Amino acid sequence: MQRVNMIMAESPGLITICLLGYLLSAECTVFLDHENANKILNRPKRYNSGKLEEFVQGNLERECMEEKCSFEEAREVFENTERTTEFWKQYVDGDQCESNPCLNGGSCKDDINSYECWCPFGFEGKNCELDVTCNIKNGRCEQFCKNSADNKVVCSCTEGYRLAENQKSCEPAVPFPCGRVSVSQTSKLTRAETVFPDVDYVNSTEAETILDNITQSTQSFNDFTRVVGGEDAKPGQFPWQVVLNGKVDAFCGGSIVNEKWIVTAAHCVETGVKITVVAGEHNIEETEHTEQKRNVIRIIPHHNYNAAINKYNHDIALLELDEPLVLNSYVTPICIADKEYTNIFLKFGSGYVSGWGRVFHKGRSALVLQYLRVPLVDRATCLRSTKFTIYNNMFCAGFHEGGRDSCQGDSGGPHVTEVEGTSFLTGIISWGEECAMKGKYGIYTKVSRYVNWIKEKTKLT
Results as ranks from 00 to 15, higher is better:
Arg3Val: 13
Arg3Phe: 11
Val4Arg: 14
Ile7Gln: 12
Ile7Ala: 15
Met8Tyr: 12
Glu10Met: 13
Gly13Phe: 14
Leu14Asn: 02
Gly21Pro: 05
Gly21Lys: 03
Tyr22Ala: 11
Leu23Lys: 02
Ala26Lys: 02
Ala26Gly: 12
Val30Lys: 13
Phe31Asp: 08
Ala37Ile: 11
Ile40Ser: 15
Ile40Val: 13
Asn42Ala: 11
Arg43Thr: 13
Lys45Pro: 12
Arg46Met: 11
Tyr47Asn: 15
Asn48Asp: 15
Ser49Pro: 14
Ser49His: 12
Gly50Ala: 13
Gly50Lys: 11
Lys51Glu: 13
Lys51Asn: 13
Phe55Pro: 15
Leu60Asp: 15
Glu61Pro: 10
Glu66Asp: 08
Lys68Gly: 10
Phe71Gly: 15
Glu76Phe: 09
Val77Pro: 15
Glu79Asn: 11
Glu82Ala: 13
Glu82Arg: 10
Thr84Lys: 09
Thr84Ser: 08
Glu86Gly: 14
Glu86Leu: 10
Trp88Glu: 15
Lys89Thr: 12
Val92Pro: 08
Gly94Asn: 10
Gly94Tyr: 07
Asp95Tyr: 08
Asp95Thr: 11
Cys97His: 00
Glu98Pro: 03
Leu103Asp: 06
Leu103Val: 07
Asn104Met: 02
Asn104Cys: 00
Gly105Met: 04
Asp111Ile: 11
Asn113Gln: 12
Tyr115Trp: 05
Glu116Ile: 02
Cys117Pro: 00
Cys117Glu: 01
Pro120Asp: 04
Gly122Glu: 03
Phe123Arg: 04
Gly125Leu: 00
Asn127Met: 06
Cys128Tyr: 00
Glu129Met: 02
Glu129Val: 02
Asp131Val: 05
Lys137Val: 10
Lys137Glu: 11
Lys137Gly: 14
Arg140Ser: 04
Cys145Trp: 02
Lys146Cys: 04
Asn151Phe: 08
Lys152Glu: 10
Cys155Tyr: 00
Cys157Thr: 00
Cys157Val: 01
Thr158Gln: 11
Gly160His: 04
Tyr161Asn: 01
Arg162Lys: 08
Arg162Tyr: 10
Leu163Gly: 02
Ala164Asp: 06
Glu165Phe: 07
Glu165Pro: 07
Glu165Trp: 08
Lys168Asn: 07
Ser169Ile: 05
Ser169Val: 06
Pro172Thr: 06
Arg180Thr: 04
Arg180Lys: 13
Val181Thr: 13
Ser187Ala: 12
Leu189Glu: 13
Arg191Glu: 14
Thr194Phe: 11
Thr194Cys: 05
Val195Pro: 10
Phe196Met: 07
Val199Lys: 13
Asp200Pro: 14
Ser204Val: 14
Ala207Gly: 13
Glu208Thr: 15
Leu211Phe: 14
Asp212Pro: 07
Ile214Thr: 15
Thr215Met: 05
Gln216Arg: 05
Gln216His: 13
Thr218Phe: 10
Thr218Glu: 13
Gln219Ser: 04
Ser220Asp: 14
Ser220Met: 07
Phe224Ile: 11
Val227Pro: 10
Val228Met: 06
Gly230Tyr: 11
Glu231Arg: 13
Asp232Ala: 14
Ala233Ser: 09
Pro235His: 07
Phe238Gln: 04
Trp240Ile: 01
Trp240Gly: 00
Lys247Gly: 09
Asp249Leu: 08
Asp249Glu: 12
Phe251Asn: 07
Cys252Met: 01
Ser255Asp: 01
Val257Arg: 01
Trp261Gly: 00
Thr264Ser: 06
Cys268Phe: 01
Val269Gln: 03
Glu270Trp: 07
Gly272Phe: 06
Ile275Arg: 02
Thr276Ala: 08
Val278Trp: 05
Asn283Gly: 07
Ile284Pro: 06
Glu286Phe: 10
Glu286Gly: 09
Glu288Met: 06
Glu288Ser: 10
Thr290Gly: 06
Thr290Met: 08
Thr290Trp: 10
Thr290Glu: 05
Lys293Gly: 04
Arg294Gln: 02
His302Lys: 02
Asn304Thr: 06
Tyr305Thr: 02
Asn306Cys: 04
Asn306Asp: 08
Ala307Ile: 08
Lys311Gln: 05
His314Leu: 00
Asp315Gln: 02
Ala317Thr: 03
Glu320Phe: 02
Glu320Ala: 03
Leu321Cys: 02
Leu325Val: 03
Leu325Trp: 04
Ser329Ile: 04
Thr332Cys: 05
Pro333Val: 01
Cys335Met: 00
Asp338His: 05
Lys339Leu: 05
Glu340Asn: 09
Thr342Arg: 00
Leu346Trp: 09
Gly349Tyr: 12
Gly349Gln: 05
Ser354Asn: 09
Ser354Gly: 12
Ser354Gln: 10
Ser354Pro: 05
Trp356Gln: 03
Gly357Met: 10
Val359Thr: 13
His361Glu: 11
Lys362Leu: 06
Val368Ala: 11
Leu369Trp: 07
Gln370Ile: 02
Leu372Asn: 12
Leu372Ser: 14
Val377Phe: 02
Arg379Cys: 06
Arg379His: 12
Cys382Asn: 02
Leu383His: 14
Leu383Ala: 15
Thr386Trp: 07
Ile390Val: 14
Asn393Asp: 10
Asn393Ser: 14
Asn393Glu: 07
Met394Gly: 03
Met394Trp: 06
Cys396Trp: 01
Cys396His: 02
Phe399Trp: 13
Gly402Asn: 10
Gly402Thr: 08
Gly403Pro: 15
Arg404Phe: 13
Asp405Phe: 11
Gln408Lys: 12
Gln408Met: 13
Asp410Ser: 08
Ser411Phe: 15
Gly412Ala: 13
Pro414Phe: 10
His415Val: 03
Glu418Asn: 11
Glu420Pro: 01
Gly421His: 06
Ser423Arg: 09
Phe424Thr: 00
Phe424Asp: 01
Leu425Ile: 04
Ala436Ile: 12
Met437Thr: 14
Lys438Glu: 14
Lys440Tyr: 07
Tyr441Asn: 03
Ile443Phe: 06
Ile443Ser: 03
Tyr444Gly: 02
Thr445Phe: 03
Arg449Ile: 05
Tyr450His: 03
Tyr450Ala: 01
Asn452Asp: 15
Lys455His: 12
Glu456Cys: 07
Glu456Ile: 07
Lys457Leu: 11
